[in-house]
């Protein structure tokens, strides 16, 4: 097997006595879209913050394209694109300026910035919005700009935290097909609450509950193993069982 683009090993994050993420390990390979599920407060966002270097894990290690995130954060982060739950957008900048800034900060060579921005805009359907101020964009367009800034430097690993929240059905379809397309050459981690979204876009699913990974499998083997039962049933079963247990 080739080296995974992202591997997390025994990640732990404790806030005082409370353990938000408890020994989570997983791997992500090139061309894969991983659905990351879990109820609210299960540790999804904390895990993503650790994967992107925004939060230091209490224990465990993270490697991105073979580079240790904790030892060589800048080299590792150059391979990452991240869209947090709230897209981090500078309202005073135009779309072009903002994407150029994102490219520059992610070490895209000077001569290639314009091309990188044009490509990201094309992929996210922002071609006509380049000169607009971000403050004047609708929510759907802002979300697209958020995705565009995550992929402008053509990273190996793209991490998207609830990318389709607040979009209309048409936009959701577009974003989903974009995620599928990204999965072709990048690795994508997609966090979401929408289970059909996972079924339509992801190759593999993992479910986190109460800080622990409770399920990890490919969608195809899930379908084989569970027969007719849907992802929703699996999710409900795992999460509710956990909650019922003391």
């Amino acid at each position: 097997m080739p080296t995974p683009t992202l591997s997390a090993h025994n990640l732990v994050r404790a806030y005082g006595p409370h353990t938000a993420v408890d020994h989570v390990s997983f791997e992500l390979h090139r061309g894969e879209v991983l659905g990351f599920l879990g109820p609210n407060g299960a540790g999804k966002s904390t895990t993503m913050q650790m994967l992107t270097g925004n939060l230091a894990p209490t224990a465990g290690s993270i490697r991105i394209c073979g580079v240790d995130l904790l030892e060589h954060p800048t080299t590792a982060k150059a391979h990452l694109g991240y869209l947090p739950e709230t897209p981090p957008l500078y309202r005073d900048l135009t779309v072009d300026e903002f994407l150029a800034l994102a490219a520059r900060l992610h070490r895209v060579a000077k001569g290639e910035i314009a091309a990188a921005v044009a490509r990201a805009k094309e992929r996210c359907g922002l071609k006509k919005a380049g000169k607009k101020l971000i403050a004047s964009l609708s929510k759907g367009y802002r979300q697209r700009v958020g995705i565009a800034q995550a992929i402008v430097h053509n990273p190996q690993v793209v991490i998207l935290d609830e990318p389709t929240v607040g979009l209309d059905p048409l936009q959701i379809r577009e974003i989903r097909s974009l995620i599928r397309e990204l999965g072709g050459e990048h690795s994508v981690i997609l966090s979401t609450h929408i289970l059909p979204e996972v079924e339509s876009t992801c190759d593999r699913v993992q479910i986190i509950n109460d800080g622990k990974l409770v399920f990890q499998d490919t969608l195809s083997s899930l379908q084989q193993r569970m027969g007719s039962s849907s992802l929703e049933e699996v999710f409900v079963q795992l999460v509710v069982n956990e909650e019922a247990a003391p």
Binding site: T52, G53, K77, L89
Partner: peptide, 14 residues
């Protein structure tokens, strides 16, 4: 406040 700090923190910057 604007949640944009994460943009800088996730970029390959020290």
């Amino acid at each position: 406040r604007d949640r944009t700090l994460v943009f800088l923190l996730s970029a390959p910057l020290t």
